[in-house]
């Protein structure tokens, strides 16, 4: 009796979860399915894209110079993630390893940036980039985003949980704080550091607002190249889906390979 009931509830669980999972994945599937159809089949509703064709990718390539866009996007995301990680490490270390005046106030200064929406600071930042001559450059996209409160707060949290015996031992050896950071703290921070790195990279890769503002004239990253396909009268769906596929593929591959790290990073962080 109970055995039967649990079988039924379990089947119900599978149905609810599986149904929702499929529903969530349909748009992603349809994105790639459409991009792989022959141009004359793009409007087809057949579930499987058959015969397969890469013509849409070739068309997108011809319109957009995809390799440059991919390279620029990868460069931008790597620079932003690396910068945020480095600055987060240094600041988190300062908060975790020393008890100093204004420590609480300065920590609050980082946390409080969450309450400042991008749209409130965009105009003065845009003007400053204009004065620095950095509009329409990748550097102009990277520079204002180099410090992430998320990175500082999370790394501080992790370092506070760090076993102090290790640090004491290192200090007995006569190592300075800089060497302790790189030879003791960082090597022992592996998994959370990796999760955070993946998360910051994905966020930077998918970033839209700021590149849209800074790179107005050049459309030099994938998200903007994709936007240039949209909105025009009579969308060219095939190449557009191919470009969208290229914009998602690296992150989705990263997710396939590093699923635990990615999920871990998002759970720890909250959503930016």
């Amino acid at each position: 009796m109970t055995g039967k009931a649990t079988t039924w509830t379990r089947a119900g669980g599978h149905l609810v979860l599986g149904g929702l999972g499929v529903l969530c994945a349909v748009p992603i599937y349809w994105l790639f399915a459409t991009s792989l159809r022959r141009p004359q089949d793009v409007s087809s509703a057949a579930l499987l894209p058959w015969p397969l064709s890469l013509q849409n990718y070739a068309d997108a390539w011809a319109a957009l110079d995809l390799p440059t866009l991919l390279g620029n996007t990868a460069l931008m995301a790597t620079a932003i993630a690396a910068g945020q990680l480095l600055i987060g490490l240094l600041a988190g270390y300062a908060f975790a390893a020393w008890d100093f005046r204004f420590s609480r106030a300065l920590h609050l200064a980082f946390v409080a940036t969450w309450l400042v929406p991008f749209q409130v600071t965009m105009l003065p930042n845009y003007v400053l980039l204009h004065q620095l001559g950095l509009l329409n450059t990748i550097a102009g996209v990277v520079l204002p985003q180099l410090c992430s409160a998320l990175g500082v707060v999370l790394l501080r949290q992790h370092m506070l949980g760090f076993p102090r015996e290790l640090l004491d031992a290192a200090r007995m050896d006569g190592r300075g704080s800089w060497r302790i950071l790189w030879t003791v703290v960082v090597p022992n921070l592996g998994p959370p550091l990796a999760s955070l790195a993946v998360l910051l990279f994905i966020n930077a890769w998918n970033e839209y607002f700021w590149p849209a503002l800074v790179l107005q004239r050049s459309n030099a990253v994938l998200q903007l190249g994709l936007r240039s396909f949209m909105g025009a009268e009579g969308n060219d769906w095939g190449p557009m889906m191919a470009t969208a596929g290229m914009a998602c593929l690296p992150v989705l591959l990263l997710y396939l390979v590093l699923q635990r790290r990615v999920v871990d990073g998002f759970v720890r962080s909250g959503l930016k």
Binding site: G21, C24, A25, I28, I202, N206, M230, C248, L252
Partner: peptide, 30 residues
């Protein structure tokens, strides 16, 4: 639901979060 199946379903539900907003907009407009 047992462990592995539940993780597979969650992976599917989670995937849209990783789709860039503009790419999401593109596929939804289609």
């Amino acid at each position: 639901v047992s462990g592995r199946a539940a993780r597979a379903y969650q992976a599917l539900v989670f995937a849209p979060l990783l789709v860039a907003p503009v790419a999401g907009a593109a596929v939804w407009s289609w």
